[in-house]
Amino acid sequence: TRVETATETAWISLVTALHLVLGLNAVLGLLLLRWQFPAHYRRLRHALW
């Protein structure tokens, strides 16, 4: 059971790390998009709101 718990903890930390990386990538991607295409982003925002 100790090995199972260790594997579980490893999986949880792995999934958490993946989520963090994906979240960071999403934020960075959005920031890059805003920086690269400000006009396009503004138009998109007007369409959404």
Rank of each mutant, 00 (worst) to 15 (best):
R34S: 05
L20V: 13
V3M: 02
W35A: 14
R2V: 15
I12M: 10
E4S: 10
L33T: 04
G29L: 15
L14R: 03
L31T: 10
W35M: 15
E8A: 05
G29S: 13
R34W: 09
W11V: 11
R34K: 15
L20W: 00
W35L: 15
L48R: 00
V27L: 13
A47R: 12
A39Q: 12
V21F: 10
R34V: 09
R42W: 04
N25F: 04
R42I: 09
E4H: 09
E4V: 14
P38D: 12
L32R: 06
V15L: 12
R42C: 04
T1D: 00
R2S: 13
L31H: 02
L44C: 06
V15F: 11
W35N: 15
T16R: 06
V15A: 08
L33W: 03
L20T: 09
L20N: 02
I12Y: 10
A47N: 00
Q36F: 02
R42G: 11
T5G: 07
Q36I: 12
L28C: 13
L20M: 14
W11A: 02
V3D: 10
H46E: 12
T9D: 08
A6Y: 07
F37Q: 00
V15K: 05
L48F: 11
G23M: 15
R42T: 12
H46Q: 14
A17Y: 03
L44K: 06
L28D: 03
R42Y: 12
A26T: 08
W35T: 14
G29N: 08
F37C: 05
G23E: 01
W49G: 01
E8Q: 02
H46S: 03
W49S: 02
T9I: 12
G29A: 14
A47W: 14
T1F: 12
P38N: 13
A47T: 10
T16M: 09
A26Y: 08
W35C: 11
E4C: 09
T16E: 05
L31Q: 04
E4K: 08
L22Q: 10
T16N: 04
W49I: 02
A10W: 12
E4N: 08
P38Q: 10
T9Q: 09
G23S: 09
Q36V: 14
T1N: 03
L22G: 06
L24S: 05
G23H: 01
L20P: 01
G29M: 15
T7G: 10
I12H: 09
T7D: 01
F37L: 06
E4R: 09
W49A: 02
T16D: 10
R42A: 13
A26H: 00
R43C: 00
W49F: 09
L14V: 05
A6D: 02
S13V: 14
T5H: 01
F37V: 06
R2C: 09
Y41V: 10
Y41P: 03
L48P: 04
T16H: 02
A10V: 05
F37Y: 13
L28Y: 09
A17N: 04
H19R: 10
L18E: 01
S13T: 14
R42P: 01
L24A: 12
L30W: 03
L32S: 05
T5V: 03
A10Y: 03
A10T: 06
L33P: 03
L28I: 05
H19I: 15
A26M: 11
L32C: 08
H40N: 02
L28K: 07
R34F: 10
T5E: 10
R43E: 05
R42H: 11
N25P: 09
T9G: 13
W49R: 02
W49E: 01
